[in-house]
Design a protein around this nucleic acid. Structure first.
Lengths: 204, 204
DNA sequence: AATCCATGTGAATTTAAATTCACATTAAGG
DNA sequence: CCTTAATGTGAATTTAAATTCACATGGATT
């Protein structure tokens, strides 16, 4: 893997990006080799120069997604140092992931990709769990600095955050991009924030 | 439709139930006619006596799901008269839907079924939206009776509730039934409930 | 009893898609 | 320049699954 030529690596990335782009297109369809190829102006058979088979492409997509999600966490950590701000920022990034950039959430939150092999489902599970752990870490830090109510169960809070994002992805996708993701986040955020509040604050 | 024989209706239901049962089985795979048939001890071709094609079966599954979900709402309304109790009860029913009864949430929350035709996705969207409206109605009633903070946006609250259920379904499914749905609901409920609280109550 | 119809079957057939293969083309390095 | 390896192509081939079809069978109706 590390020994492969740069050009090859680029082509592989192009293929993954193309696949992601197609998946992100509102009207669904499960992804077809033919589509990816024609999107890149290639013959279907060309893709087999770069990937053993379709499955390998799907696996690469998963890896790509994992990177994107973790990159978002890092970015947010770098940009804000308050836990609540970090979470809010993360919500914004998710909005992009859902609406703009290729239908990543569609993939994370759907069977489509990992339908066949148990292995891919497991991998996806690890990604999601890993992501939840990242959220938890942010929350715990916030609790230590008393930005977030320390009595709360961080795991539950992380999943509640996740529970803001996932339905948005579903509804956006089902609605063919009609659903107002931003509106949803805007309405959900204060509710979520009210959960985080440290006890004392509610007297004000 | 209303003129069809009873026996036929039964067979149709059996087919739908069988399909649902298979879908609910942990290891996924997109549903195959062959599987449904062999589950019922029939030849694949037999199914075509009852449904025009696979698509018709999928559509019937959607309708079946819709009924189940709405029935749950009715049941909850009948059993409890306090909004908060109703929601809590609904969570329990969702737990069943996820863990026991055939993988309904898998279907609702996944692309699998409506991959192809835009029509099925639209139908699913209507089901989900309708369900959210039911939740909203429960919440509004609770607000009128001051069981739930009337300042809250009922739409947002409904979606937050939904956001407890959906991730559970995803994680349960991804984890091959390992994920502790009950634990998740138990941890999430108090957080959710704290959102619902009427302002005054937090001073206690 | 004769007929009809709903339901079933197993053996094709169709279809859509992935995959393979024999053959270009091009660029890089000796 | 010649060789080689990487990348591409179009035309098969394979594969998995849905779907059709000609032919039972059994129970209800006349």
């Amino acid at each position: 893997m590390s020994t492969e030529k740069l050009a090859s690596k680029i082509r592989k990335d192009q293929i993954v990006e193309a696949a992601l782009h197609i998946l992100g297109d509102k009207r669904v369809k499960k992804i077809k080799i033919t589509e990816i190829a024609s999107y890149l102006g290639l013959a279907p058979s060309a893709l087999y120069r770069h990937f053993k088979n379709k499955d390998a492409i799907l696996t690469a997509i998963l890896e790509h997604i994992r990177e994107k999600m973790y990159k978002n966490v890092e970015r947010v950590r770098a940009k804000k140092d308050n836990a609540i701000d970090r979470l809010q920022e993360l919500l914004t990034l998710h909005e992009n992931l859902i609406c703009q950039h290729q239908g990543i959430p569609r993939i994370v939150f759907s069977d489509e990709l990992w339908g066949q092999e148990k292995i891919k489902r497991q991998r996806m599970y690890l990604i999601v769990r890993g992501y939840l752990l990242e959220l938890e870490a942010i929350i715990r830090e916030g609790q230590m600095k008393n930005e977030i109510n320390p009595d709360l169960n961080p795991e539950a809070v992380a999943r509640m955050f996740f529970g803001i994002v996932q339905p948005a992805a579903l509804l956006w996708h089902m609605s063919e991009g009609t659903f107002d993701v931003n509106g949803h986040f805007t309405a959900a955020w204060p509710l979520f924030q009210s959960v985080l509040q440290v006890e004392g604050r509610c007297e004000l």
